[in-house]
Nucleic acid binder design. Structure first.
Length: 691
DNA sequence: CATTTATAAATTTTT
DNA sequence: TTTATAAATG
């Protein structure tokens, strides 16, 4: 970073103005009330947004009146860091940056009162929502009948989809969950109960955050100030916004002088979260007179990589009126490697990763991308065996691990003593207490009583010994001790986590097979907690911005080392690496078997492959295992023979260098000829040890 | 009667 | 690896 007190402004300004091409410059300096930047992959979208922030600040816009909505918090941080380096100031810290959900959280705590929301609400993620629905399902006695009732995760998915697409429940079920059609009535009653319980206990789920922000933004028409809070609104990844988010932008935009949305319809991959490309296509209708700027020069990938990527997306049914081009050097064609099976794929990949490392590309600048989190299972084993360090993004459900949920549930009841789901979970941690005893205790403690009623369920737990099965006396005493200590100390989230862990340790030894690892996780959780000022902040920030990888949890020491990146394609959005390895490019995996029901879904899978390939800067490897393993269903042996993904027809294959792995085939041959005797076996084995 | 233990089944992508 | 159901146990 430059630290020149004299002329910092001129220096910095000069350096970023010179770095922009005309289209980027147009986007950065646009004075239009609404601007849509259609930015293809690798066209300097992040740079453009960062420059826009810097430009606005230099033009005298107050940083606190700039809102930067991004898809992940990491993206916001990155853009603001870059903006700071350009302006040479720290004022970018005042810029409002983050995801829709994180910003909603902040706004609602400040201004929620004006729409009748208590500012001390707690936030639950989709897993929590599913747990609440499960509780209600049991209360209503559903799921006990003859018919199979949708699982809790399905219920949560139906709910979220309905809300985010803003359609009626019946229509949503018909369109996306037709197999639940018969249960519509019961589903409706669960949702009704779910809504009232949330309200009663002052809890918001992810969708509520958006809905309440929307309400807040609309209420601004009637005189309050929220829609007038920002002069400039910048929205990243606009193609992945849903109906509510678009409405929020529309209403917030009315109070602002400038709105700038950036997106690429070719990279829309979140329709399962109710995102709709319509938002980007309708931009000029929603914002009459909007200016549209196209960024088509790619600064990321070499021409051969761009050629295959363009070819893949060109087959998409939808219109993409842009073609990316690049002036970068580099003639090396991407490689399409056919392997016998996944084991061979892993071996081949490891060899290529190490080769690139020898050529000077560190592991960190290489990534392995895949469709579903479990696609890397076999590879992870192989990497561990070869001592190649890696960090996996996406799929790591740290917050979904049972033991972490245990800790959070305990922290939650301390924060919100009327949180039913957490009580239900916490009570069952005690040996001798199962679902029904837990229900009885919750009744006795008055968990479902009105918010703020006295005495609080926590006080009741401590003051009157509630009746419980004799076998559970000891465990209950331990629980009360832990709660008492945490309430008394008030010394921060980390201390609470440590105290709670003390209580949980014996339960882990009893319940889990790998208690050691789980206890270690809790230590990391305590470390993480120490970074937050209080318990409430820790809980909400953790649900809104969960650690993206094991690396995030391990903390700084790991960051000095070199490690390979493993990521789902979804989590790789917006990132880039020198070398990208796309594995399992077989039909059934990309596109996923579960996503080939409708043409729309298949198109989204195509875009997914496009996103994966356009992450590569210098070299792209695509691996295709002929034979792959899936969990055996019934009597199958679990192996299937696959086809190369339908998104790479012959014409596109010709743009690759084709290769085949012969190792396994070779070994087969050796096996057949050599192993006819004991010495033959030895000889065969020795060929395996040889390089 | 409620809890624990055993057994079987199912498992995309994420704020 | 989790989650729903069935049998066994206290």
């Amino acid at each position: 970073m430059f630290e020149k007190p004299d002329g910092t402004d001129m220096m910095a300004r000069g350096s970023w103005v010179d770095g922009l091409n005309p289209a980027q410059m147009e986007a950065v300096t646009s004075e239009a009330a609404a601007t849509l930047v259609v930015a293809g992959a690798g066209t300097g979208k992040t740079l453009t947004l960062a420059c826009r922030v810097a430009y606005l600040i230099e033009r005298g816009v107050q940083p606190g009146r700039i809102l930067l909505l991004t898809f992940t918090r990491r993206a916001a941080r990155e853009m603001l860091d870059r903006a700071r380096r350009m302006t040479g100031e720290t004022r970018t810290e005042k810029v409002w940056g983050g995801t829709f959900h994180a910003v909603a959280n902040r706004l609602l705590r400040l201004h929620g009162r004006s729409i009748g929301l208590r500012p001390d609400f707690s936030v639950m993620d989709q897993a929590d929502a599913a747990d609440v629905m499960n509780l209600i399902r049991d209360d209503l006695g559903l799921g006990k009948g003859e018919r199979r009732f949708p699982r809790k995760d399905t219920l949560a998915a139906i709910y979220s989809r309905t809300v985010n697409t803003c359609v009626r429940l019946g229509e949503a079920v018909d369109r996306w969950f037709p197999w639940c059609r018969d249960e519509l009535h019961e589903i409706r009653s669960i949702f009704e109960s779910y809504t009232t319980r949330k309200r009663d206990h002052n809890v918001l789920d992810y969708d509520d955050l958006l809905l309440h922000w929307y309400a807040l933004a609309r209420s601004a028409h009637r005189g309050t100030a929220v829609a007038g809070l920002f002069d400039h609104i910048l929205v990243d990844e606009y193609q992945d916004t849903n109906a509510i988010q678009a409405e929020i932008v529309r209403h917030m935009g009315r109070g602002a002088t400038g709105l700038l949305a950036v997106g690429d319809d070719a990279q829309a991959i979140y329709s399962f979260r109710a995102a709709t490309v319509r938002n980007i296509l309708r931009f000029q209708t929603d914002f009459p007179g909007a200016r549209v700027v196209k960024l088509e020069q790619n600064y990321r990938s070499t021409p051969p990589i761009l050629a295959v990527s363009n070819a893949v997306i060109a087959l998409s049914r939808e219109r993409h009126e842009k073609t990316l081009w690049s002036e970068l050097p580099g003639r090396r064609r991407p490689e399409l490697l056919t392997c016998l099976d996944e084991a061979e794929q892993s071996g081949a990949l490891c060899r290529r990763v190490l080769d690139h490392r020898e050529e000077g590309v560190p592991l960190k600048r290489q990534a392995v991308l895949f469709r579903a989190a479990h696609h890397s299972d076999l590879l992870e084993v192989e990497l561990a065996r070869r001592n190649i360090p890696f960090v996996k993004y996406g799929g790591l459900k740290f917050l979904e691990a049972a033991h972490v949920k245990d800790v959070l549930a305990l922290l939650r009841i301390l924060e919100n003593p009327h949180d039913e789901v957490s009580w239900f979970r916490v009570l069952q941690l005690v040996e001798g207490i199962g679902p029904s005893a837990a229900r009885g205790l919750m009744e006795e403690l008055g968990v479902r009583t009105e918010l703020g009623s006295e005495p609080s369920p926590l006080r009741r737990l401590l003051d009157h010994t509630p009746e419980c099965p004799p076998a559970a006396e000891e465990g209950m005493a331990a629980l009360r001790g832990a709660v008492d200590d945490c309430l008394g100390s008030g010394s921060g989230a980390a201390a609470d986590v440590e105290r709670v862990s003390l209580f949980l340790q014996p339960q882990f030894l009893r319940r889990y097979r790998n208690p050691r690892e789980r206890v270690r996780d809790l230590e990391q959780l305590a470390l993480l907690a120490s970074g937050y000022p209080n318990r409430a902040r820790f809980i909400t920030e953790l649900t809104l911005d969960p650690p993206a990888s094991t690396g995030d949890l391990a903390g700084p020491p790991l960051l000095d080392e070199d490690f390979l990146i493993l990521s789902t394609i979804h989590s790789a959005k917006g990132l880039e690496w020198d070398v990208v390895h796309v594995i399992n490019a077989a039909d059934g995996m990309i596109p996923s078997d579960l996503a080939t029901r409708s043409p729309e879904e298949i198109e989204e899978e195509r875009r997914l492959l496009y996103v994966a390939m356009t992450r590569a800067r210098e070299m792209l490897h695509v691996y295709f295992p002929l034979r792959y393993y899936h969990r055996p269903r019934g009597l199958e042996d679990g192996h299937s023979y696959g086809q190369l993904t339908r998104f790479l027809p012959q014409s596109i294959q010709d743009l690759f260098d084709r290769a085949t792995e012969h190792l396994a085939a070779h070994a087969d041959g050796v096996l057949a000829t050599a192993v006819g005797s004991a010495t033959g076996v030895d000889e065969f084995l020795s060929t395996l040890w040889k390089e």
